[in-house]
Design a binder for these strands. Structure first.
Lengths: 334, 334
DNA sequence: TACACTGCTCGAACCGGTTCGACAACGTTA
DNA sequence: TAACGTTGTCGAACCGGTTCGAGCAGTGTA
């Protein structure tokens, strides 16, 4: 494998000259530049990433931390992975994907060993042990998901409270007064996934203000329990005219379920949910839904991270930025 | 940040002694070991990954190359990502996930810069430009998917030919003589995804041998075209008694489609497909199907890779290993 | 008593880059 | 003509580990 020393010899210059020619950090005469370029080409020189990281303290790698918990719905998670990955590459960064169960320990490992220049954290919990690790790390971190206490980190998330209000307002305006709300499984709440609380609480608060009957249920994350829980819910509320689904695994299974049950949307029941257009496409979902914007969130997080990496000082105050929920009307509410 | 020099000073020994104590490559007295252990703990020492990679020529990182082409069905791809990722971690490796469009260039970049110790390649095409790059790389590579010419690399794949035979045999045995086969989109064939050929050709060959009418169709990868193409197919073959679906996006959409059309499985139509149990769970798929075993394939690829990394010489001949197709009966064929 | 051997430790070299300070050569300006 | 600034290049130090060869002390053997 060719090293920078080989290039230097071939071009008849010193190693530092080669380095400067390649980085452009000092001016090099056109003739020398050309000789170096030729030597690089000749020898097929590619700088050694480890050596470069060691010397420059930059790895050009971003960490991406996520769980594939049994109760995370992997296809939904995937949207974020894809968007973070491509946003990073556009800015010259590679992605180190970390999926260990013990996220805090893994985060400590990759930050302390200097494997990454920054980290994107997915699937944030209310009191997420990874936050404290990230805060005391050398590298900047960006959270996709709002925790209880951001603790100096940049946060990007959908405004779940506003999403709930948009949905409830919409249903109320159309005359619905008896509504079912299907949330994520109870243990996802208990685990501290704060977006679940924010959505539910805002929906309940809004419904209460309007005097709407809002019946809250907690769904499941796996078949066949999904099916069973849907059965139970629908049977218990024959008078409800609308269903709000905030549950990826359930919404994915809903079309087949309703169809088997002989129910039509929206004639028998109005349905509204939250999911990204990519998710909706993969699962052929026809429902009116709030767009969850994983693409935008991933891009924003990476952008901010790169900004902080390049300007550690003047990147400014930590940011909490919400994406405004946009209700995409697909005609399943009336 | 504490370096190995700081630890050495704190423990009153030389840097090399610390290194040997941590690696265990030479014997160190118990007392010294203890002093070093205490110093490491005290200072919170974690070895710098770049420095270690530079000195030891090992990064403890595996590359994972994949596309998120518009016509790849992301949730199916996800199964492989998850299994490779967890298999790697069990063996002490992190995953560098590379999703660039130009896979060959990206592969060259990460191997030549020595960012990884080995690479897993997903979504292999018949003449995949990445193979030549991988073959001439310093690092070992493992393919998940059989190309036209493995060229010295280890290959792991489902035996798609045998899968087709198992399915056709099964249908034939149950008396089916008029069968529809729904393949991936035509452009996936054209692009050179060899597993599509292997499955289709084996099915056709087998059907011909039995004198079965096998009607081959090419599906779509996106809604609403999926729906339209299904309509067209079913209308064109009212006499067919069975449907074989080798198309992730379509099988995901099939339950809702059939249900909307008022068709019951298996009373109106026998349905058999290929997908992993995780995929089936995510999409609530009820169909009898050949298990595609992404978990096993990922684990096998990583295992082999790690073996080659640790024993560059005596790892033996390149391997082509097929997972035997197992038909999981879910009662949708009769 | 001389010798070999074993167990433990050290210093130095090395991995392959980046970066700083110095300096020669040259053209400008006083 | 002396002083000065610019431009292009070099050598050396450094980043933080690993590894090789050598040495020293203590023990066992001839």
């Amino acid at each position: 494998m060719a090293t920078i020393g080989d290039v230097a010899r071939e071009a008849g210059v010193s190693r530092s000259t080669v380095s400067y020619a390649l980085s452009g950090k000092r001016s090099i005469s056109p003739e020398t530049q050309e000789r170096i370029r030729a030597a690089v080409e000749n020898l097929g020189f590619t700088p050694n990433a480890g050596a470069r990281a060691l010397a420059s303290q930059k790895t050009m790698v971003l960490g991406l931390l996520l769980h594939f918990n049994a109760d995370e719905f992997a296809p939904a998670m995937m949207q974020y992975v894809m968007s973070v990955s491509s946003a990073a590459r556009e800015r010259g960064y590679d992605i180190l994907m970390i999926t260990e169960d013990d996220g805090a320990a893994a985060l400590r490992r990759v930050t302390e060993s200097n494997m990454v220049d920054g980290v994107v954290l997915l699937d944030i919990h209310h009191s997420d042990p990874r936050i404290e690790v990230m805060r005391s790390a050398r590298q900047p971190g960006a959270l996709i998901g709002l925790p209880g206490e951001p603790n100096g980190l940049d946060v990007f998330d959908l405004d779940f409270g506003e999403a709930a209000r948009v949905i409830v307002d919409n249903l109320y305006g159309l005359g619905h007064r008896d509504i079912m709300l299907l949330c994520p499984p109870k243990h996802v709440f208990d685990r501290g996934a704060a977006y679940t609380w924010r959505f539910r609480d805002a929906a309940q608060e809004r419904a209460a203000r309007y005097g709407i009957h809002l019946h809250t249920y907690y769904g499941e994350s796996r078949q066949p329990a999904i099916q069973t829980s849907l059965e139970a819910m629908l049977s218990s509320r024959p008078d409800a005219t609308a269903l709000i689904v905030h549950n990826d695994a359930t919404i994915a299974a809903l079309p087949a379920f309703l169809s088997n049950r002989g129910m039509s949307v929206p004639s028998d029941l109005s349905v509204v949910s939250l999911y990204s257009k990519e998710f909706g496409r993969d699962f052929s979902l026809p429902y009116t839904a709030v767009e969850t914007s994983p693409g935008e969130l991933g891009r924003m997080a990476v952008e901010r991270l790169v900004q902080r990496i390049n300007n550690p000082d003047q990147a400014g105050e930590p940011l909490v930025r919400f994406v405004a929920p946009e209700l995409v009307d697909r005609g399943t509410v009336r």
